[in-house]
Amino acid sequence: MQPVAAGVMSPFHAGVFSLVVFTILVMLFIASQLFLAAWLGEKKKSPEKSRPYECGIIPTGSARFRYPVPFYLVAIFFLIFDVEGAFIITWAVVYRKVGLPGYEQMSFFIVLLLAGLFYIWKQGGLDWRETGKRADS
């Protein structure tokens, strides 16, 4: 058996083990809440009660609708930038070690990123109010 005061399973080390125990605790707490929420309290079903709320009116059509494209466009930008953000973040930890050459390369990368951002900005990729008739606001 491993020495208890060290290693992954050590209760004295604030490592993954501790996190796992904490997660289990949190989950137990939330599960208890969910269980209580579901169990306690009188249940009285009625057709009106289970109808989705829409300002007191019977809803028209489905509440699952296709969202227009701009949203996805921005989501894709986000994805791209997020991945590139990952590069920056990894560089940040070792920024002292890689020194000036690293900084030069990274600043080139960031400037490129900025240029890309300005490009989609100019192209209108960041305008969500695509149909606003009075778009000057």
């Binding site: 009188e42 009285k44 009625s46 009106e48 009660k49 300002c55 007191g56 009116i57």
Partner: peptide, 12 residues
């Protein structure tokens, strides 16, 4: 009808 629906949509 709206008042009634809102009332009925409230949980017990």
């Amino acid at each position: 009808p709206v008042v009634l629906r809102l009332y009925e949509q409230m949980p017990e």
